[in-house]
């Protein structure tokens, strides 16, 4: 067995992979939330759609995206393998309930992770797959007056089947034609069950990361009397509060808006 294979087959090696993929997914969440803040702009989806178009067509992002998918798959598979190993390490369970003083989330990472995986599949099916491989999405044309800043929006019907996007200028106007993912967001978040599902999933993110983020540092061996409290602070406030809250607000806000239409 090669030394690397040996390393990653060891219990510690598997944990290393969990930690590294987990941290990568954490950094993605920051970027993802940042981009999605466009949803809170009242610009008829202009910012959001342009951002989505950028993500889909900028090659380095695409490479990172595939790395991301790989991480999700590896993180899930290794979690499964570790869980199976861990179960077999205690074939006979205790009769008395183990109320060991450990946090609830740390003991339920598997359940939380499973909820998240389900969420990711549905979420990606709805937006990513629809965006990339389905032709159900329409196009929007944003005409922006570069002098006044006024912007008008109209539906756009491309002249040919594999139209992707275009940017052009006509006099003082910039014309941007992109896929209208924003409409999909509005449509999706007008369904109550969908909103509830999202909010639950973001709850799972919160609990998963309140343990997961700092746990990754522990696994990597990056603990230090001076820095570990900072890691715990970030893990708690950024990853378990701000990020899940930010994501959860989007469906809630859109749902409320849909009620008034």
């Amino acid at each position: 067995m090669s030394e690397f294979k040996q390393t990653f087959n060891s219990s510690l090696g598997k944990k290393l992979i969990m930690a590294l993929t987990g941290l990568f997914l954490c950094t993605f969440l920051i970027v993802h939330l940042g981009g999605n803040l466009f949803l809170f702009r009242d610009d008829k989806g202009y910012g959001f759609n342009v951002y989505a178009n950028f993500l889909a067509h900028f090659p380095p992002i695409e490479v990172i995206a595939y790395l991301l998918y790989l991480c999700i798959i590896v993180h899930s598979i290794y979690a499964l393998v570790l869980t199976i190993n861990n179960r077999s390490a205690r074939p006979v369970t205790y009769v008395a309930h183990n109320d060991a003083p450990a946090s609830w989330s740390s003991k339920n990472m598997g359940i939380l992770g499973s909820i998240l995986l389900l969420f990711i599949v549905i979420h990606m099916g709805d937006f990513w797959f629809t965006y990339k491989f389905n032709n159900v999405l329409g196009f929007k044309e944003y005409k922006t007056n570069l002098v006044t800043g006024d912007r008008t929006v109209t539906d756009f019907k491309p002249g040919y089947a594999d139209f992707e996007n275009s940017i052009s200028t006509e006099g003082n106007n910039e014309i941007v034609r992109v896929k209208d993912l924003h409409a999909r967001v509005v449509w999706s978040f007008s369904h109550l069950w969908y909103v509830v599902f999202y909010v639950i999933a973001m709850g799972a993110v919160s609990f998963h990361l309140v343990h997961g983020f700092q746990s990754a540092f522990q696994t990597l061996g990056w603990t230090h009397r001076k820095y570990t409290p900072i890691v715990k602070f970030i893990g708690t406030w950024l990853f378990a509060v701000i990020i899940p809250l930010g994501f959860a607000l989007m469906p809630i806000v859109y749902y409320i808006q849909s009620l008034s239409k």
Binding site: S11, L82, N86, A102, S106
Partner: peptide, 22 residues
């Protein structure tokens, strides 16, 4: 020592901290 630990069939760590507490 880690190799021997794995060979003995112990589970892996999920950093719950139950061990430290007990």
């Amino acid at each position: 020592m880690v190799a021997q630990m794995d060979a003995e069939g112990f589970g892996s760590c999920t950093n719950t901290g139950a061990c430290e507490a007990e």
